[in-house]
Design a protein around this nucleic acid. Structure first.
Lengths: 212, 212
DNA sequence: GACGATCCTGACGATTTCGTCAAGTTTTAT
DNA sequence: ATAAAACTTGACGAAATCGTCAGGATCGTC
């Protein structure tokens, strides 16, 4: 796609060209991810989304054909960044450093996008019915690659002899937990609300707890 | 089978005394926990619960005043067993053994009661709004006690110097993950469905991965 | 065998939700 | 200026849901 290069900007005297759609869709999605993550698919109504977006309901339907369309769009968006942090896991890197970067980035991104993270967790908890075959396939491939990197480390004796798949499951579970179940974590840590420093502590503790 | 205890029988020409209520409530709860865990509170309808219970809807309302009442009852039931496995963590035990027992029991119980586990996870994911103050308090106390045991081990140099609270969060997160996000785990392990042996492997790998 | 308690049930009403529509307004391009 | 495209909106219809109710069926006990 990316043909028709050269001048992307047209006239654009003000700065509105197709902007209205972009702005309104963004607003709807932003509100939706929060509501879906807090109340689930069925618990969220379009009227509510409309209200919190500052748009009349019929206008929401102008931008999205159905409630499911909004949900699917969100899945796709969240999924786009799913494996971002995993890119740190590469065979040529130092295992310790790579892992530290990975854990820190995963924690930080789930902290920053807590609503997205919870939204996605909720979807997976229900079995991930909205995930397309293509998306599942992608998850699988990325995981395989990361496992290969770990196996490479193990073969060189730079990493403990663990099943990399279980190892990654452990890391995912833990890093997700802090953002997704924040109230439980906060209660456990006996703080009113999780702050960045709690996430930093988490990263340190996780890395320290794992045999490396 | 083969029950028909020693002195259990009352008069009970048949064996119905208050049994009908017990049986029907149990059936309703059993169906509900499955449906709630699969579709959430709002996504589950009373008609559906009725249908799958083999009862007419009005009859469900005879046993439970509202949908919320069913949900709250389930929370209470699931919560009753929440800390069962934690009882293995006691200061006088050997840390390694205690932890092994704990991890194994937690994994096994979430495997055996997957629907309950997912149901509870869903509730916590949404912020645990249905948990009573008393229940939260109980969680906190039990956690504190377990942390004290770990601190005791640390003070004797029998355990790595970790923050026990983060440590337990890590264990909870990981053990829950296998049952709650079973489809993701199965995909990662590249098996069609998780079996008991996968959970056993998980326990071994978790215990092996943690620095002890 | 009768009588009170427990259990069962079809039909119903009030409300809410999704999604549509047709008619308006604003923006953009020529 | 003008016409097409993009956007906005109040009102509406069909369907689903929660929870109720009044009366009938069964059960347990004397």
């Amino acid at each position: 796609m990316a043909r028709q290069s050269g001048g992307e900007r047209k006239k654009a005297d003000g700065d509105n060209e197709g902007r209205i759609r972009a702005r309104n869709e963004a607003k709807i999605l932003e509100v939706s991810v929060r509501l879906f993550s807090a109340k689930g698919f069925d618990g969220t109504t379009i009227s509510e989304i409309a209200e919190e977006s500052g748009l009349p309901k019929a206008n929401v339907y102008y931008y999205f054909k159905t409630k499911t369309a909004i949900y699917e769009r969100l899945i796709a968006e969240v999924f786009r960044d799913w494996d971002a942090a995993l890119r740190h896991i590469r065979p040529e890197r130092d295992p310790r450093e790579a892992l530290a970067d990975y854990v820190r980035e995963k924690l930080e991104s789930s902290r920053r996008n807590a609503a997205q993270s919870r939204f996605f967790a909720g979807e997976l908890l229900r079995g991930g019915k909205f995930l397309s075959r293509r998306q599942r396939q992608h998850m699988l491939e990325v995981t395989r690659e990361a496992c290969e990197a770990v196996e490479h480390w193990i073969s060189e004796g730079r990493f403990p002899e663990l099943d990399p798949r279980h190892f990654f499951i452990m890391i995912w579970a833990t890093t997700q937990f802090y953002a997704d179940f924040a109230p439980v974590v906060a209660a456990t840590l006996e703080v009113p609300r999780l702050r960045k420093s709690d996430f930093d502590d988490a990263a340190d503790q996780i890395l320290k707890a794992i045999r490396l």
